[in-house]
Design a binder for these strands. Sequence first.
RNA 1: GGGGCGUUAGCUCAGCUGGUUAGAGCAGAGGACUCAUAAUCCUUUGGUCGCGGGUUCAAGUCCCGCACGCCCUACCA
Length: 525
Amino acid sequence: MSSRSSLYLTTPIFYVNDAPHIGHAYTEVASDVLVRWSRQCGADTWFLTGTDEHGQKILRTASANGVAPKEWADKLVAESWKPLLDLINISNDDFIRTTDERHETGVQKFLQKLYDDGHIYDGEFEALYCVGCEEFKPKSEIVDGSGAFEGEKVCKIHSKPLELLQEKNYFFKMSAFQDRLLKLYEERPDFVQPASARNEVIAFVQQGLEDLSISRTSFDWGIPIPWNSSHVTYVWFDALLNYLTAAGYGNDPEKLERLWPATHIVGKDILRFHAVIWPAMLMAAGLSVPEHVYAHGWLLVGGEKMSKSKLTGIAPNEITDTFGADAFRYYFMRAINFGQDGSFSWEDLRARYHAELANGFGNLVSRTIGMNNKYFGGVKPEQGELLAADTAIVDLVASAAAKAEEQMLKFQIHEAIASIWEIVDALNGYITEQEPWVLAKQEEQLPRLGTVLATVTEGLRALAVLLHPVMPDATEKLWIALGADQAIGALADQTIAEAATWNQLPAGTELQPLPVLFPRIEEEA
RNA sequence: GGGGCGUUAGCUCAGCUGGUUAGAGCAGAGGACUCAUAAUCCUUUGGUCGCGGGUUCAAGUCCCGCACGCCCUACCA
């Protein structure tokens, strides 16, 4: 993100074939943190997520379960996907389904425009077809035969020979956009991020682009091609358009004007669709290309990409049930370099939960509120003259907040959190050095004691604001405990830019009871 | 086959365009303190920087080869 005036951020829309795992949740959380941060920076922010519901796989899964595809999608959306968003506290402004009427009509308008403008033609799609699978096979599922089928190409699943079949398809003239795409990557180096992703995309496009088959006739679970309803739209072409149809394309020009272009967060597996096909589609339609396409890495379990087939798939609630949503959000954002693959382990999660959240942040809050209660009857004390140690804290909060904002703009979420965490560590150190419990024993030191606790309390106020995008629940509890809700206003309304402004919480503000933010988790489980 | 990336302390990772005794966090060890969630703070053990060559006054950092792992090589929602 290069500026902060507005942000229309999207996650991929998730295929409703499966139940969510932590990889999906990871994408959602990262997007949500960026969005919440952006909102607190005062930007005009809109956050979209949703589900992808067309295509042959879903049709097949639904049939296998004896229901209509829409019914199947409805069930998964209601029972799996929307609950996931609640589980991990996702603050999306909209949720689009590709079966929404607004989407289907928008897709058809888009297709018709491309057709009218000559970007689509009809041709022959020729590919290897597996009778067992009843579908054309992608290269990845075609292998060399053995035994009786030596020398032939066979289906990976059925190990039976494939037939070369042809199907009449409509094609999008993507090849025509090759040069414009390369120019785009060249002129806007931050269009595809991180750099490793950009390099891959460029290398791919330089090899030359083919036209894209965008319709299917072998099944009917999809959006009909407007000028020939015997074809349905290829599911990817359909899916990508959600970013536009949710933004008002085809029915709300003002909304579209406000939101477009978007910034897309995607997993690196679907980078090509977003960094090549999608901008080509937009160019064809005469619309501006996305602001950024950011590809994040995989979660690795035991050094391998997490996967259900290898039994390393983990359901989000397995983590949140024990550690809570905030810890889930914090852990994945802090421990993994956004944009690179990162290792997940229960040991690491548990260790960071205790070292950083319980002992570090949680205990800092607890000891601070505790001393305010013990020494000042539960109100924020008056701040007196600031000594060097105090102003060092004030300065650190300001510089940490500024660094965090810089890093968030560059999608370096893990770095931003590390910057903010400097405040946690500094406050813990400050308390130990200032020894408020010693000051408390000397009556003449009462003003100094007040200043020390006022300083730490202000530090907590700043932390609540800065960490709110990452841990909305815990910071809200802290906010209320500080009495800030009454004294200053809602936490979500506090801006990042003002977070470091000192003495916002007035002396005399009454503190409220503090629940334990991150209870220690007993061994065993 | 072709292209790219990775391999640094027990663990997870930083180390930009080559330059003082290779860093952080966690874990481990010792100490201080008691406001706090048996927490916090200080000190500290620990690395032939995957292996083998080479360039250079100087290489974790550049070049070549090897080993291991991963990714891309168009329709994988």
